[in-house]
């Protein structure tokens, strides 16, 4: 496994089982071990149902593994309380979801503010941060527009802006290009390249060849049926 001496995220023999013990039990992840070093762009590659989203949510502290260990920045997250887990998620990760998950009848600005609300920043600081990510995403003119009323590309950039507003060290994206045309896809990959150039770690789950074959990708983890079946470092 390619990993630095002090990996940012380490995953050790992790499994995830949904509906455990029930007839519809699903073993989504079966004993995956890997690590992610700071500044890396990692792609989790595999068809749908291969467990990449489940692995992603465990890395992103959204869910706890059924067994095994996930450590972020050297802290084992499996045993942390919900509040502590949330706090790590908030400060360390920025999420970009497949369906974007913007709140359509809130303004772009309010959508971007959501991750900052529980941090208790001052209103001035919050405004400044929103202003900064809006500028980075070229969305200043859409600040007060409702998120449901802007174009698909703008929605995509709003979702990215929301992911970046807490200055995360790791950006996690789940099938980010699934609903985008080629132009918007490459625009998004440019944004990822830009982020990575500034030191942000990026983890992308996808089966889109446009992402997999993109030059920004440092390493690809191939998943099938919840297990790692291959690893490529182009």
């Amino acid at each position: 496994m390619t990993s630095g001496a002090n990996p940012l995220v380490s995953v050790d023999d992790v499994t995830k089982t949904y509906n455990r013990g029930a007839p519809d039990e699903v073993r989504a992840v079966r004993g995956v071990s890997t690590s992610v070093s700071a500044g890396e762009v990692l792609v989790l590659e595999g068809p749908s149902g291969s467990g990449k989203t489940s692995l992603l949510t465990m890395i992103g502290c959204m869910s706890r593994p059924t067994s095994g260990q996930v450590a972020v920045d050297g802290r084992r997250v499996s045993r942390l309380s919900e509040v502590a887990l949330t706090s790590i998620r908030r400060s360390t990760f920025g999420f970009i979801f497949q369906h974007l998950h913007l709140i359509p009848n809130l303004s772009v600005e309010d959508n971007i503010m959501i991750p900052m609300v529980p941090t208790g920043l001052s209103p001035v600081e919050m405004k400044q941060r929103v202003q900064r990510v809006l500028a980075e995403m070229h969305l200043e003119h859409r600040r007060t527009a409702l998120a449901g009323r802007i174009s698909g590309g703008e929605q995509q950039r709003t979702a990215v802006a929301r992911a970046l507003v807490n200055r995360p060290s790791i950006v996690i994206a789940d099938e980010p290009t699934a609903h985008l045309d080629s132009e918007l896809s490459s625009e998004l990959l440019e944004i990822f390249a830009d982020l990575n150039a500034r030191g942000t770690t990026v983890i992308i789950a996808t089966h889109d060849p446009r992402v997999i074959d993109h030059p920004i990708v440092h390493r690809r983890l191939l998943l099938r049926d919840g297990e790692v079946v291959g690893e490529h470092a182009p």
Binding site: T86, H101, P115, V117, P118
Partner: peptide, 16 residues
């Protein structure tokens, strides 16, 4: 329900 899910996903805890 979906909104609550979004809030939790982007870093709100149950108390928030």
């Amino acid at each position: 329900r979906k909104e609550i899910g979004i809030l939790k996903a982007v870093g709100w805890d149950t108390g928030d």
